[in-house]
Design a protein around this nucleic acid. Structure first.
Lengths: 216, 216
DNA sequence: TTGTAACGACAGAGCGTTCGGTCTGTAAAA
DNA sequence: TTTTACAGACCGAACGCTCTGTCGTTACAA
């Protein structure tokens, strides 16, 4: 986390203000686009003046950086949560549970996901890496989850890498293609269908598709 | 196709210049972001002056519109091609072939796909619809292809809607997540893997997975 | 009184767009 | 063939505007 300028020495206050900035800015940017909101407009939405805003950030693009970092942290937290909660479960249950939580998280933070998509090109390469890395970590999490199931023979021998990637793609799709999907699915329904698709692909050979019924 | 201002009466020349503008602008925008290229910079890359550029467009945002329209037309062309070439084939072959072609098309025009992804939030709703419609048509194409296979009993009874959507999502992923995928896959490899995933999911019950071997 | 959060007018830069003008190619007139 | 006239593609300086980021000031809490 690179440093972002502030004139305040009160760390708690800075964090609070920045949290607020992240939230409001993300909403605004998702609604109108980064370049279509001015610092004035943002300050206004925050209930501050431009000067006040610049008391806590060094530049407009710092806002992007703050948001990017926030999303990366989210990813980290999600993964940590998975690791803790699922430590001792069976691969199949781990997968089911983590898929459910992951899709929920993406839904909840879908503004951020869309934001990241939209903003990517305005970021310097260095900052893009932060996003790339966070995404890679998620994919790798699912990949190794799948692989551990394959090793124990509980899953079929599928290409874990592509499947993991497809999982993340499906989740992202919920965020950035909601305009289409929400005509036909609720989040729950969508999650169920996707989980079924995935379990279908990994269910061990021989057994027809024993894991395909979702318990909900 | 709404009208875009030009000062020229020579339709052929206008088309030629605009084609050039579309190509170069898309490249630039995908690299740096719409708001980070100026008309001056674009004109320069085109080998023109700003005045020359404005001879063929009415405003900077007209460029977005031109590109959006171009991609929508591409989609239409792809679908027409499918319709013609695959008319009499079996559903399974139709699917395999159309997947291959579709992934190839997405790869070839990946700048445009990325562009759409990036620019979506900045577009007026009216123009977004153009994109939505084109995407919906692609999804519907695969959906009905799957359904016709299900009706004849050649495919398993899967949720064609979600599978069709996943196909399009997987193709898009190739375009806008190439930074990750290209570490591990070539286009051919990626296509093969995805085709295998899909055939796997629809292969009729009883038979193990007879269509899983890809002929290439 | 001192420190600092907050204000908001303002400077400076950069942008999209315009517009008076040039220059090249074509075609009619001589 | 040479001259003249003209259309229109193209140029680039300049305009008007918006935006970011600064800074002198105020309000207030300790």
């Amino acid at each position: 986390m690179r440093k972002v300028r502030t004139f305040s020495n009160d760390t708690a206050l800075v964090n609070e203000r920045r949290k607020h900035i992240i939230k409001i800015a993300t909403e605004l940017i998702v609604k109108k686009g980064y370049n279509n909101i001015s610092t004035r407009e943002l300050a206004n939405a925050l209930g501050m003046s431009t000067g006040g805003l610049y008391h806590y950030i060094g530049s407009k693009s710092d806002i992007l950086y703050l948001i990017i970092n926030f999303t990366a942290e989210l990813t980290g937290q999600t993964l940590d949560r998975f690791a803790k909660e699922l430590k001792d479960a069976q691969p199949a249950d781990q997968l089911k549970e983590s898929l459910k939580v992951y899709f929920e998280t993406v839904d909840y933070y879908r503004d951020f996901h869309n934001f990241v998509n939209h903003i990517m090109l305005s970021l310097p390469l260095k900052d893009r890496r932060i996003v790339y890395e966070a995404e890679s970590r998620i994919i790798q999490f699912f990949e190794s989850l799948l692989n551990s199931g394959i090793e124990t023979g509980q899953f079929r021998k599928v290409d874990a890498k592509i499947l993991a990637h497809n999982i993340v793609a499906a989740a992202n799709a919920w965020a950035n293609r909601g305009w289409y999907l929400k005509r036909y699915y609720t989040l729950d329904k969508y999650t169920d269908e996707q989980v079924e698709c995935i379990l279908d692909q990994i269910s061990a050979p021989g057994k027809a598709s024993p894991m395909a019924q979702i318990s909900r």
